[in-house]
Amino acid sequence: MAFALPVWLAVQEELLGQGEAENGAPSCFEDFDDEALFQMFHLTRPCIAFITDAVRIRMKKVALKKPALSVDSMVMVTLNYYAHGASSAAILKGVGLTQKDCQSLVGTVSGVIAGMSDQFISFPLIREAKANVAFKVKRFCGIPNVLGVLAPAHFKIRASPYEKDTFRSFVNTLGYTSVVSQIICDSDGNILSVEKCCVGSTFEQEMWESSFKGREMEEELHGPYWVIGKIYIYMLKVNKHRNTLYT
């Protein structure tokens, strides 16, 4: 994709705002081999590099109580937190942070990542876009008129076991505490929709029925298209008579 020159100049200015010390410096992720990298962050090296580069472009300066860290270090702490629901002691020691410092840092980086969501998450709205997504899905699995694959994504958290009722609500069917979001992807793995952050015990169909995309399908705003569910698998097509198929 070609970008206008002013866009590239703006990107360059933001990168230079990080200071020359970070440009060309070895990444802190290079201290991990591929296996250790996946264990610590649940992501591959190319995926981590993409996230780090995207965040670096958006972050000029972050105010922390401790001396400012490099963007790589801030992303490392944040991705480790996402992967395990808490920051690993080894990671915090390596960057010289406490758990309290970590909460503020994760909040800051998460805000930057959330601010980029509209660049990477887009549901097909126009007729041509819907037809293109449906064509690719049909070519992949033979099912016609499918806009995407629906599935819950669980994110591990630490919940206090002393608050028994609250704790139980976060325990999912896999036996650990989490929050869960409803995600729709196309056949290429592109994220089309993310919504409904709920406690981990929430049933998938309950999320779907109360979600924006669920209501849009209910009102037939997307025409004759299906959404295929994964986990408690169901295929949903909305028409005058609502049909839900479980397998």
Rank of each mutant, 00 (worst) to 15 (best):
G229P: 02
K237P: 07
S187N: 03
G200I: 05
H222W: 14
M217A: 04
R56V: 03
G115V: 10
V146T: 09
A89V: 13
T78C: 06
L16K: 09
E216N: 04
G229S: 07
G17R: 09
S110M: 10
L245W: 12
V62T: 03
H241N: 14
H42E: 13
Q205F: 14
E13K: 08
L147R: 00
N23L: 15
S87R: 04
W8E: 05
G111M: 07
I126T: 15
K60V: 12
A89M: 15
I157K: 02
I113K: 02
V106G: 01
D33P: 02
E30G: 00
K196A: 07
E30N: 09
C197H: 03
L5R: 12
L192P: 06
L147Q: 04
S193C: 14
T44G: 10
K136I: 13
A151R: 10
I51A: 05
L79M: 09
Y162W: 13
D186H: 04
M40P: 01
A49L: 05
Y81I: 04
K164V: 14
L79E: 03
V95R: 06
L79T: 05
A131T: 11
N23T: 13
H154Y: 08
F140A: 12
V194I: 09
E35H: 08
I57H: 00
I183E: 01
I121P: 02
T202Q: 01
L236H: 09
V227W: 03
K65E: 15
N23D: 07
V179R: 01
P161F: 08
M76G: 01
Q182F: 14
F203W: 09
M1T: 11
K136P: 11
M207D: 03
V109G: 02
G94W: 07
A2N: 11
P6K: 01
V133Q: 05
L125E: 12
F203E: 11
Q18R: 08
N172M: 05
A134G: 02
I126P: 11
G19T: 00
C28E: 03
S160G: 09
G111L: 07
L147M: 01
Y176H: 04
M74V: 00
D53T: 11
Q205W: 10
V55M: 05
V133M: 05
L9S: 08
L245G: 11
G17I: 05
N239D: 15
F32D: 09
M74F: 06
Q99E: 10
K93T: 08
K138W: 14
K164P: 11
P67S: 06
I184F: 08
A4V: 12
L147T: 02
D31R: 12
L125Y: 13
H42N: 10
V55Y: 00
K65L: 13
F32N: 01
K66T: 13
D188I: 09
G17C: 04
N190E: 08
E209T: 10
L16Y: 12
T44I: 10
G200E: 01
S193P: 09
R168F: 13
A2K: 08
E20T: 12
I57E: 06
D31Q: 13
N190D: 09
